[in-house]
């Protein structure tokens, strides 16, 4: 039961802003642009990512920083690698994957004060 309840709650939480916006706010607040140019699955289902991506990043951040555990999966670098725009190479900017949603939700992102928002330029023969 709890599982179902949680799932419903999660689904409604994830869907609410979108549905809401579609009806009422479309004229006032720009809808987030979710353009994913690289195919394939994310590291977790979309609704889980919507709700918990910050927790995953936070957890991985401390592991990498403090213990030197550089697992790729939940690393910010890995996020940027897939989600950076094909045109600008960045997750920021007007239609940036991170910035457009965060602007919509009015949540400040602190990551890119220090981290680069740009996808790494792929170099031949680089280990990753």
């Amino acid at each position: 039961m709890a599982r179902i309840a949680a799932a419903i709650l999660a689904a409604s939480l994830a869907a609410a802003p979108l549905a809401d916006a579609g009806e009422k706010r479309a004229g006032r607040v720009a809808l987030p642009v979710v353009k994913i140019t690289k195919g394939g699955d994310c590291v977790a289902p979309t609704d889980e990512m919507r709700r918990n991506h910050m927790e995953m990043l936070l957890h991985q951040r401390d592991r990498t920083m403090r213990q030197g555990l550089r697992e790729k999966r939940f690393s910010l670098k890995n996020c940027v690698e897939c989600h950076a725009s094909r045109d600008t190479g960045s997750v920021l900017g007007k239609e940036g994957f991170c910035s457009s949603c965060h602007a919509y939700a009015s949540v400040k992102i602190d990551c890119f004060e220090c981290h680069t928002p740009m996808r790494q330029v792929p170099t031949a023969g680089a280990p990753r």
Binding site: A2, R3, A6, A10, E48, R51, N52, M56
Partner: peptide, 9 residues
């Protein structure tokens, strides 16, 4: 996931 969403993540 069934227990709590945050803890699960």
């Amino acid at each position: 996931l069934g227990w709590t969403a945050a803890a699960a993540a």
